[in-house]
Simulated scan of single mutants.
Amino acid sequence: MTAAMKRQTLQNMAEVLAHKVSYNQRLFSANQDEIVQGLTTDIYFIRTRELLRHMGLDRTPVTAEVFAGRPGILAGVEEVKNLLTGLPVEVWAMPEGSEIEEKEVIMRITGAYDDFGIYETALLGMLASSSGWATAARRCREAAGDYPMISFGARHVHPAVAPVMERAAIIGGADGASCILGAKLAGQEPRGTVPHAVMLIVGDTVEVARVYQQTMPPEAPVIILVDTFKDEVEESLRLTEALGDKLQGIRLDTASERGGVTPGLVREVKARLRQAGYPQVKIFVSGGITPERITILITAGADAFGVGSYISGAAAIDMTMDIKEINGQPVAKRGRIPGLTDAPRLQRII
């Protein structure tokens, strides 16, 4: 019995047709068991399995290579490793966080095709999405330089993939993430303060700030939103009067209906805080942040950034998997060069 069979993966078209799902009382995302079982694979890989078994070719040893469709930052390798660990395959890959080039081979898998072919859809998707998010985060990192930059993108994607996205953002260069599971999967604790909702319910920004400072853990930074009720400058100065040196930062997230956070607003708040004797209070900016806006807002005086849709909405980096050897002999589809590609940066991971 093969490792793929021991995993209880889908074996044939009959099992696909027999599989039933409930539309009620379940989230529509695949859970880990369903991914491992092969339920997220493209149907043609199940047809391939059945055909090869019928012809006695399912145990054919092959080497497959995965290459990227455009340059970027590689992420998703650890998830692919977790998916394939336990199968009788050998896997080489470039490290996560590596800069990759168009058409560069980023992964190589050797084994009987039947043992890993069913996972082509899943592993390509893991690499493609995570690399796209990591690449967008790297662009923000490059724009921010040494200024803190946190990923706030979880609300823009399906919750099933939000942790994947936030982890990829950290690999790409984000200093942290607001999504609890995403941050923890990256070996960090989640970062963030409070939303407008608590301000609206309580009715006063200063009152929220006082209670926040009193009740949150000592290591939680006191960074307070200032655009809910009053002019951002007025609210910032009210906070300095109430909290004094305990106020570490203010957050600007001005609604697009009021023009969003402009360089002029940042400059004014910065100057007024300095004039009031609080130059140490940092200005954290969120809402529609892009690399271009980061550069402009740093010049205006911003100190840190929360980036949402620019990272979460990034296009995936298309990944392609090609068989390049069968029984140790070079092969390739038309248009590709047969045999293994020179890929000196690959490292053995399984």
Rank of each mutant, 00 (worst) to 15 (best):
T60C: 05
Q32E: 02
L39P: 09
N24E: 07
T60P: 02
R26H: 03
L51A: 07
S22F: 11
H54A: 15
T41E: 10
F45I: 11
P61M: 01
D33C: 03
I43W: 09
L52F: 06
T48I: 06
E34L: 02
V36W: 11
L57V: 12
Y23E: 14
Y23F: 11
S29H: 10
L27C: 04
L27A: 00
L51T: 09
Q25N: 12
N31E: 00
T60W: 02
P61W: 00
G38F: 05
Y44S: 05
E34D: 05
Q37M: 11
S22T: 05
D42S: 07
R26E: 00
S29A: 07
R49C: 12
Y44V: 07
L57S: 04
L57R: 07
Q32A: 03
T40M: 06
Q37W: 13
P61S: 01
R47D: 14
R47Q: 14
L51R: 08
Y44A: 10
A30Y: 15
Q37D: 01
Q37H: 14
P61C: 14
D42H: 03
F28Y: 12
I43S: 09
M55K: 12
V36R: 15
G56S: 03
Y23Q: 14
T60Y: 01
R49M: 10
F28H: 09
R59Q: 13
Q37A: 15
T40W: 09
L57W: 05
G38V: 10
T60V: 15
E34N: 08
F28C: 02
T40I: 08
D33G: 03
I43R: 11
Q32W: 05
L52H: 00
S29M: 03
M55E: 10
H54P: 06
E50T: 06
D33M: 13
F28T: 13
A30L: 13
F45N: 00
G56C: 09
A30P: 00
F28M: 11
H54K: 15
D33L: 13
D42G: 07
L52T: 10
R59W: 03
L27F: 08
R47K: 06
R53W: 15
Y23A: 14
N24L: 14
I43Y: 06
I35K: 12
Q37P: 00
F45K: 10
S22H: 08
D33S: 08
R49Q: 15
A30H: 13
L39T: 09
L39Q: 05
Q25K: 13
N31Q: 01
G56Y: 06
E34K: 02
T40C: 04
I46Q: 06
Y44W: 12
A30E: 00
R59V: 14
R49D: 06
F45C: 10
V36A: 03
Q25I: 04
L52C: 01
E34G: 02
G38K: 05
F28W: 06
D58M: 12
I43M: 01
A30I: 03
I35D: 04
N31K: 10
Q32K: 00
I35L: 10
L57F: 02
L39R: 06
P61V: 14
L51H: 05
M55T: 07
R26L: 10
I43A: 05
T48A: 15
